[in-house]
Design a protein around this nucleic acid. Structure first.
Length: 315
DNA sequence: ATCCAGGTTCACA
DNA sequence: TGTGAACATGGA
């Protein structure tokens, strides 16, 4: 089992410009008002710092807002090989949907009055998921049946115990542990040291699964097949699978309905809170076919923008 | 104290 | 297919 490692200093290696499809809402694409704080990333009004991991390779990236492109400063221990550079760029382009065209969604959403204001406020916002499937699965697991406060606390415990602390560009952030880092960890340690409660028994199985199933290989599979495969993992139900489908795999029609989203959607679309998740799903998939998940995303983020889960840092 | 939180599993109709 | 209890932990 891995012990806590000392902080790793990453050095600036490259500066890259990535093209973006406009309109592009920088702030609410790289930072989501509804996401809880993790110390995997940090944000100001016009910048984002974020860590990425590929196997044993760790990266820190600073994103700067520009009008016509995204400016990246890439930090790592070693010089980037062509392969690792390509992989990192591919991850970033996918994570933030840099080249996605949202015009079809905006057209389809005109049938929903409740979306007029959210779209006006957030035009150009994309789905964001810098996490790997393994990472987002764990984050979803830690959101299950508990308060955000405890999700935040459990995440911090896991990162402090098994993650890797890195410094770059004057920031110190955590890198997520790899499947290998968590695969051999006894359930008991996760209970007593990370305070994961009953979730402790699921996490080692997650790690085993993603140790055997590479992220890229999973993305090759057909969507329904991935979701079905993932749901066979104990601890992955409709919500977690929905998060993976809609965020990590960027299915614009997939929905992850938790009690909060469902309430919000109920109020916005039906004028009352006690609506069944399935009702919301069917309604949105009928109203904005092919874009149900995006519709929910715009509604939810515009609501959280009024009182974000995390505040932007000053500088 | 007692309840229950941004789900999921398992048992039993 | 559908419903309901149990699940760990910690804050209200």
């Amino acid at each position: 089992m891995q012990m806590t490692q000392p902080n790793l200093a990453l050095k600036k290696k490259e500066t890259i410009r990535l093209p973006i499809q406009k309109p592009f809402h920088f702030r609410c694409t790289l930072w989501k008002p509804s996401h809880f704080s993790t110390d995997l990333e940090q944000h100001t009004a016009t910048r984002t710092w974020r860590t990425f991991r590929f196997g044993a390779e760790l990266f820190g990236v600073r994103f700067d807002k520009r009008d016509d492109y995204l400016l990246l400063h890439i930090f790592s221990k070693n010089k980037l090989s062509d392969e690792s550079r390509a992989r990192l760029i591919r991850r970033i382009e996918t994570a933030y949907g840099l080249s996605e065209d949202l015009s079809e969604f905006y057209k389809a959403a005109r049938t929903l009055p409740a979306l007029v204001r959210p779209i006006r406020a957030l035009k150009g916002m994309r789905i964001s998921c810098p996490e790997s499937i393994f990472e987002i699965a764990i984050i979803s697991l830690l959101l299950q049946n508990t308060t955000i406060q405890r999700s935040t606390q459990m995440t911090r415990n896991v990162l402090q115990r098994f993650g890797r602390s890195v410094s770059f560009d004057g920031r110190t952030l955590w890198c997520f542990p790899s499947p290998a880092d968590l695969a051999g960890v006894p359930e008991d340690i996760l209970r007593t040291e990370c305070r994961l409660g009953y979730r402790a028994k699921y996490l080692p199985a997650f790690a085993q699964f993603f140790l055997a199933n590479d992220d890229d290989a999973l993305r090759e599979l057909k969507r329904e097949e991935v979701i079905l495969t993932l749901q066979s993992i104990k601890g992955v139900g409709p919500y977690t699978a929905g998060v993976i489908a809609s965020h990590a795999l960027r299915d614009p029609d997939a929905l992850a309905l938790d009690v909060w989203n469902t309430k919000l959607a109920g109020k916005a679309f039906f004028g009352r809170e006690n609506i069944k998740p399935d009702h919301v799903r069917k309604f949105l998939q009928r109203q904005v076919p092919g874009h149900a998940g995006l519709a929910l995303l715009y509604l939810v983020e515009s609501e959280y923008l009024k009182s974000p889960m995390t505040t932007l840092t000053r500088s």
